[in-house]
């Protein structure tokens, strides 16, 4: 018997006996990254504020009163008021719902479709790969903001269409990432090993390829949320996004544009909000990238 071949040694890694969940490990590693936790903290704070907007800021986002327009920050309107006398903070908090959900949904759309297309292209290769990737190249040839503009102009404005437009315009990027990592993974010996024990294509994709390809997608997704918010803001800025009086951050920036010389709070605060959100998402994305790498321990 082979049992007599020594396996124990003084240097054996100390291993916990109970089953460890990989996601718990990821969370444990993420917690050690202070910057990532700062990013996560900011985001959680923003989401909570956005969710409880009606409670905290009962005035709503369209409480117009011309007589109190263009106020600088004061004790009642912390961030001042805009050209229609609406509290900028009130609008921003309500707007957070719109901006954050645009970011999330747009990225979800692009991850799901981009991931699927990229995985198919990478896994099957050949003709399938060619057809999918060349079609996506056509999309890629058009600057994504231009693409989003065309989609919104074709479908009309509105929250859902903006999400769709931003989501579709970033599909090619995700497809490329997923395809590249699937191609690398496909050549790994452990995929061949899975074939050797009789695993089906479905099992190989679900059990072996996706879990390993997930990390770069999650990271790209986190960073993508930031990009999507920016794109949506861009769309609103040029007037193709949400119709007024919807308080999307980009729309607010855009609205403040004509008053930028006379009334700075209208551009400064929404701009800051976008900046901080993107900063937080980037921090979290970087942290996740490290935390998701199973080879980096601790």
């Amino acid at each position: 018997m082979a049992k007599n071949v020594a396996t124990a040694s003084a240097s054996a890694p100390v291993v916990a006996d109970k089953k460890r969940n990989q996601w718990k490990e990821v969370w444990r590693r993420l917690k050690q990254n202070k910057m990532a936790m700062l990013g996560l903290g900011i985001l959680v704070f923003m989401v909570i504020i956005a969710l409880s907007a009606d409670l905290l800021f009962p005035k709503g986002f369209d409480d117009q009163m011309i007589s109190r327009r263009f106020q600088l920050p004061n004790s009642e309107y912390w961030f001042g008021t805009d050209n229609l006398g609406r509290g900028i903070l009130d609008r921003m908090v309500h707007g957070a719902r719109v901006s954050l959900s645009i970011g999330l949904f747009a990225v979800t759309i692009s991850i799901v479709f981009g991931g699927l297309l990229g995985a198919m292209a990478g896994f099957y290769g050949g003709k399938v790969d060619n057809i999918i990737m060349r079609s996506l190249d056509v999309l890629l040839a058009i600057p994504s903001i231009l693409l989003a503009i065309s989609i919104v102009s074709a479908l009309g404005g509105g929250l859902f269409n903006v999400m769709l437009a931003v989501g579709i315009s970033s599909i090619p990027g995700y497809a490329r990432i997923v395809r590249a990592s699937v191609i690398t993974l496909k050549g790994q010996e452990f995929i061949e090993a899975a074939r050797a024990i009789g695993a089906s294509d479905k099992r190989i994709i679900l059990r072996h390829i996706i879990p390993n390809a997930l990390a770069p997608i999650i990271v790209q997704g986190t960073l993508g949320v930031a990009g999507a918010i920016l794109s949506a803001a861009g769309l609103s800025f040029i007037g193709l996004g949400l119709a007024p009086p919807n308080p999307e951050w980009g729309a607010m920036l855009s609205g403040g544009r004509q008053f930028i010389r006379d009334h700075w709070p209208m551009t400064l605060f929404p701009g800051l909000a976008i900046m901080i959100t993107i900063f937080a998402l980037n921090l979290l994305g970087d942290g996740l990238r490290d935390a998701l790498d199973p080879k980096l321990r601790n």
Partner: peptide
């Protein structure tokens, strides 16, 4: 074969580093 494994260089055995094997 030599029994056991190479020691972990962050945690070398005391005395002669080869003694566990």
């Amino acid at each position: 074969p030599i029994m056991g494994l190479m020691p972990d260089p962050t945690n070398l055995p005391t005395g002669c580093t080869f003694h566990p094997r």
